[in-house]
Amino acid sequence: MEDFNPVTMFAILRESLGPWLWGLLLIALVLVVGVVSAAMKLRSARRSPKHPIIAAALAGGVATAIFFMLVPGWTMATHAALNGPVDYLAAILIAFIPGGGIAAMVFSMASWRCARRTTAVCDKSMA
């Protein structure tokens, strides 16, 4: 495994994904910027992040579960092919990539919404 250094891993990803890699990296960058700016907005508005985090966790969890069902098909296999704990772990980790993206998106949107106005779901300000 010592051979899997960052340069090698990036080269393999680039060859595997082709131009899609740059699109995915752009999406990841947008999501990171979205999460950071939303968190800063919440902080400046002195709002609690509790409800955006709960919303993000729920959405991310559901999305991860859905993608977990889809992952074997992406490899031209079925769920019957999952044959051990390492298989389930790998499938969950792969599903977590889109699931995490959706969680980040929901967190950003919920945080901006909470920061902009007082609503029933995010009416508690930070102490």
Binding site: I12, E15, A77
Partner: peptide, 17 residues
């Protein structure tokens, strides 16, 4: 399945690299 995943999704990119 994870070994199949490497065969079906991982090897071609590693080979090209």
């Amino acid at each position: 399945w994870v070994s199949w995943l490497i065969e079906e999704k991982g090897l071609k990119g590693a080979y090209r690299a």
